[in-house]
């Protein structure tokens, strides 16, 4: 199912609550809610990965009366990232906002200050999603792998898309923003090793190029916490190979092959770009 079909599906879900005390009815509501939330999160992810601004605009036009506000804002937000100078769409979006946000955003749009306008849109989006904790969280609360997923969408768009997108400031801003978020998250002393591992392995297995410095930082942090994780070593070898660090790869392989994790760790800690 594509984005349009999924939106059509979620728009059809009833929001009626007959307020019955019957347990069977309560169960039905629970399933309906689970169905809705799960669909919502998938749709939001697809919106974030969409490069089809015509489709996004069509969906906004057709469904804006029938979708939850958070999804509408998400649709506008993505559309505006892709077409950050479309003043007509800005004005339609502004009409949905409360007076304070309206004033700020209108001011930027009227002055053609689209970079700042986009930042305001981003804040509005975060505000709405923060107030719905059950829904997919805004970027600062998302896992590294989720952020990387969006970055990957930017990288894996068709060549034609990228050629057009790279020319837009929105693309560059978004790319830089996501990269920055990843760096900040990795540097966070409270990040779980599981999250680091998930990020490293999902990126490597997807064939996404991790920045060499970022990759090494993650590996050092992770292996110091879990120096005997064979599977993770496998991913790390792929990473070293990609960056043409074949000598390092071979040396490390010798240590890991004989389960000499002390020396493996010393070697990893001494690695420099």
């Amino acid at each position: 199912m594509n984005l349009y079909e999924l939106i059509n599906e979620i728009a059809a879900i009833s929001s009626n609550d007959l307020q019955l005390s019957d347990n069977r009815y309560k169960k039905i509501l629970e399933y309906r809610e689970a169905y809705y939330k799960s669909l919502f999160n998938t749709i939001n992810k697809l919106i974030e990965g969409s490069f089809d601004k015509r489709e996004l605009k069509k969906i906004i036009y057709l469904f804006s009366e029938r979708l939850e506000r958070a999804l509408i804002v998400s649709l506008y937000r993505r559309y505006l990232w892709l077409d950050p100078t479309d003043t007509i769409t800005y004005h339609n979006f502004i009409a949905l906002l409360d007076r304070n946000d309206q004033k700020i955003l209108l001011d930027y749009v009227n002055k053609n200050n689209f970079d700042s306008a986009l930042m305001v849109v981003e804040e509005i989006f975060n505000k709405i999603f923060l107030s719905s904790p059950a829904l997919i969280p805004p970027i600062k609360m998302r896992s590294l792998a989720d952020i990387a997923w969006e970055l990957c969408q930017l990288d894996m768009g068709t060549i034609a898309d990228i050629a057009t997108m790279r020319k837009t400031s929105a693309y560059n801003m978004r790319y830089d923003y996501l990269s920055e978020q990843i760096k900040l998250r990795i540097a966070d002393p409270n990040i779980s090793m599981l999250e680091l591992r998930e990020f490293f392995t999902s990126n490597t297995s997807l064939g996404i190029v991790l920045d060499c410095g970022i990759g090494l930082t993650i590996a050092k942090r992770y292996f110091n916490a879990s120096p005997t994780d064979h599977e993770m070593y496998g991913y790390f070898f792929t990473f070293l190979h990609f960056w043409h660090l074949t000598e390092e790869e071979q040396t490390l392989l010798q240590y890991v092959a004989v389960n000499d994790f002390d020396n493996a760790l010393k070697f990893i800690n001494a690695l420099k770009i």
């Binding site: 199912m1 069977r24 309906r32 689970a34 669909l39 998938t42």
Partner: peptide, 24 residues
């Protein structure tokens, strides 16, 4: 199928929602 391709939990929840609503 179609929903499962995108989202297995949503497809499962939809299935149980449909079943329960229908029998109710």
């Amino acid at each position: 199928f179609d929903l499962s391709k995108n989202n297995r939990p949503a497809a499962e929840a939809k299935y149980w929602y449909l079943q329960n609503l229908y029998s109710y």
